[in-house]
């Protein structure tokens, strides 16, 4: 049986499907409860109650929302490009899911532990912009198109500094493999020696996922709902799910690059009793809480300030820090072989 699962092609296929389900089902439940958690946390921060009617403490609210979405009618505008209009939300959702193939939840617990894991993640996250652009263009609506254009410019701008941050981390690791990146943080998490990069990376992930204070693509005060203004029912829900899954993905990327993945903060008795995946999930939750916290705290950026921050502040700073890190590693001889 074990031999069949690990060596026969069909066995490997079955095993991969089971692994994928074991990852995606908890992920989707997590996405559903992320929406609930966001509403509850924001409510607490604004001295409201938040959802509290459906089920105890409103815990069944995500399911009520999902069923409501399923029951609604899918509306495709007359002027829309039909195929692309329906394809865009699927693409957003698909990209948010396939990226999880390489995320190591524990040592060796990745569906595909590939050599270029970090590049794969970077590639997938840079594709996210297509869902937005295609949706904006296919809707054939001014608001949607303006939102899409903003998003395209914004996501491309912040990817550049994100790339430099990732390169800085890779310099300290010497490998593109995500598992290796976490293992390299056994002595110290990269958030401590590379603290400025950690901050830049976190802010860039906010921009990359179109979250407040960088949610200009969907800025409701001027663009109604931005690129998904024309969407309804499940196609809207797919965008929504994709956005939240992307938030969780970006948080896990932050955790892997800077917060030591599945590693406990200190490798001593009470901490290393707790299994790795619990640490991993706890750290992701911490990042997600910060996402919501930022949204409840900061007003939206003005568009030119957003571009200024990306190109004139983050880009030069991360470039200088990259050179600095390389120089320090070279001079101290800490450069990994």
């Amino acid at each position: 049986m074990v031999d069949f699962l690990f060596n026969h092609p069909i066995g490997i296929l079955i095993l991969t499907v089971v692994k994928t389900l074991a990852l995606l089902v908890p992920l989707l439940i997590g996405v559903a409860y992320m929406t609930y958690a966001e509403r509850k946390i924001m409510a607490a921060m604004q001295m409201r109650k938040g959802p509290n009617v459906v089920g105890p403490f409103g815990l069944l609210q995500p399911f009520a929302d999902a069923i409501k979405m399923l029951m609604k009618e899918t509306i495709v505008p007359t002027g829309a490009s039909r195929v692309l209009f329906l394809f865009a939300p699927m693409l957003t959702f698909m990209l948010a899911m396939i990226a999880w193939a390489v995320i190591p939840v524990n040592d060796g617990w990745a569906i595909a532990d590939i050599n270029v894991g970090i590049l794969y993640l970077f590639a997938i996250s840079s594709l996210g912009v297509y869902g937005v652009i295609i949706a904006g263009w296919a809707s054939n609506s001014k608001y949607a198109f303006l939102g899409a254009m903003r998003s395209a410019a914004q996501m491309v701008s912040y990817e550049v500094s994100m790339g430099f941050v990732i390169v800085t981390v890779l310099l300290c690791v010497g490998s593109l493999n995500l598992t290796e990146i976490v293992r390299a943080q056994q002595t110290v998490w990269f958030a401590i020696p590379l603290f400025p990069m950690f901050v830049i990376f976190f802010i860039s992930t906010l921009a990359e996922t179109n979250r407040a204070p960088f949610d200009l693509p969907e800025g409701e005060s001027e663009l109604v709902a931005g690129f998904f203004v024309e969407y309804s029912s499940m196609s809207f829900a797919l965008f929504f799910l994709g956005e939240y899954a992307n938030m969780i993905l970006m948080s896990s990327l932050t955790v892997i690059l800077f917060l030591g993945g599945w590693l406990p903060p200190i490798d001593i008795a009470p901490f290393n009793w707790i299994p790795g995946p619990i640490w991993f999930i706890a750290k992701i939750c911490l990042c997600l809480f910060t996402f919501v916290w930022v949204r409840a705290t900061f007003p939206r950026y003005r568009y030119d300030q957003l571009m200024r921050l990306g190109w004139k502040v983050f880009l030069p700073f991360s470039l200088v820090w990259l050179v600095l890190t390389a120089a320090v590693l070279k001079l101290t001889g800490w450069l990994p072989a």
Partner: peptide
């Protein structure tokens, strides 16, 4: 050549084609 594959996606699909699309739509 997995490195080249990923770089192709990152550079051409993730950046160059986005700008193409951007311009063509405008």
């Amino acid at each position: 050549a997995e490195f080249l594959a990923m770089i192709l996606v990152i550079v051409y699909v993730g950046a160059v084609a986005v700008l193409f699309l951007f311009v063509v739509m405008m």
